[in-house]
Design a protein around this nucleic acid. Structure first.
Lengths: 234, 234
DNA sequence: GACTGTGAAAAGTTTCACAGCT
DNA sequence: AGCTGTGAAACTTTTCACAGTC
């Protein structure tokens, strides 16, 4: 039982990440990390599930339950030492490591991503950029020299790249994702509006502002759009 | 029973959107819309839950169940007419209307958003931009003249703006969101890494690439990061 | 024969409520 | 007294399986 400080005997070492911890829980941990980081910066040394819940708009019980999957980090009657809990969560999420990231596609969006300063403080280092278009290859974007796609496999190995950000035209998404998977990349942040198919063991997250807007309009549509009367078809 | 073609008597007209339809279902509908749009463009006239499920990596049963909240759109033995189902779903989501959107903050990120061509084809029109910084006010970004924040309330009314995209520095998020809510905006797409507090009836969706990356590293950390041995603290 | 629409079962997730530690 | 950690209960969501229609 070397891996996480949990004391049940789930079959570790299976290739699919079907550990005992529900995926929804994992998805919340980064938010806890962020809130704890904030508290730490504000000089708060001890917190509790009540306070964290208020910040995150989540019930205190949920926070306690989520944390209980990984260990006992608090002290009854007192709460959680902010620094301690933060360190534990970062370690659980693998955020105590530095991660090298490649950006595929240096069009308008890829450019914005490469120039975005928000990744580095969190341990994600954009270390390589690739593009299909010969006129982009060799240019510098965000301090990184753009390489041709043919250099992908070699650079992924040389630079120990484990994560890729895809910002290519929609039509190329699947092909680029296939190439990344073939190179051994197993975490992909997809900025295109395409549902790429990947084998088991590869994770894809999508950033899709249009989908986000479209799921909100449902609630707007009848809560009363000021001027625009929605007429039914059927 | 005017609003949606469903035949149960949930209390409509309540201010919070606690209709009978689960929120997870609403969140999936835009993806169905996208896939159907794709099929339509490819000239496919009839589809079925099997095919849609394969595209979306969702079980056919889930698609049928989701659709059943809104009506009976298919024909047994045949499937769904793509155009018909697409029209129905768009109507349900309010995507048969055009939505005017304001962008708050025209820094690097706001600039990228205002120049992003992906919103308009889906009926979202970026019609106004605001910034606090006097040196940005009056400039043109993405064909839109940047206004001061003081003009917000008036412009929201004049231009029938119902949705806002927030791309300001983190420290200003809550204040900007408060102003938007005060103006009557009830759907906000938040590009900052801050959890804004909003009253009931206001929807916030966040675009947060760092959180997306951080939830993937958990799975990478022990599936075997090529070189980097993760050592436990405790 | 093929597929939808849907109750009912199963699985997953959240919340409750309280024993137990500080 | 105050808060955590956690089984058990409540609730939500997904999947199953099949009657019904084309």
């Amino acid at each position: 039982m070397a891996i996480i400080s949990r004391d049940f005997d789930a079959p570790l070492g299976t290739s699919a990440p079907t550990l005992e911890v529900p995926e929804v829980v994992i998805d919340r941990l980064p938010q806890y990390v962020r809130t704890l980081t904030q508290l730490l910066e504000d000089g708060v040394e001890v917190t509790n599930s009540q306070q964290l819940g208020a910040q995150l708009q989540v019930t205190p019980a949920q926070i306690r339950k989520d944390l209980s999957y990984f260990g006992r980090f608090g002290k009854q009657g007192r709460g959680y030492r902010v620094r301690h809990l933060l360190d534990e969560l970062k370690q659980i999420l693998g955020l105590d490591a530095e991660w090298n990231v490649a950006v595929i596609g240096v069009g308008r969006l890829g450019n914005a991503i490469l120039n975005y300063p928000g990744f580095n403080p969190d341990g994600f280092h954009l270390v390589a950029a690739f593009d299909n278009n010969p006129s982009n290859v060799g240019t510098e974007v965000g301090g990184i020299s753009v390489q041709p796609m043919t250099a992908l496999a070699q650079t992924v190995v040389d630079r120990d790249i484990t994560i890729a950000i895809v910002a290519v035209p929609s039509a190329h998404t699947q092909s680029v994702v296939d190439q990344l998977v073939a190179c051994g990349v197993r975490a992909i942040l997809n900025y295109t509006p395409i549902n790429a198919q990947v084998p088991d063991g590869v994770r894809v997250r999508s950033i899709d502002p249009v989908l986000a807007l479209q799921s909100m309009t449902y609630y707007l549509a009848y809560q009363g759009h000021p001027t625009n009367g929605h007429q039914k078809t059927g």
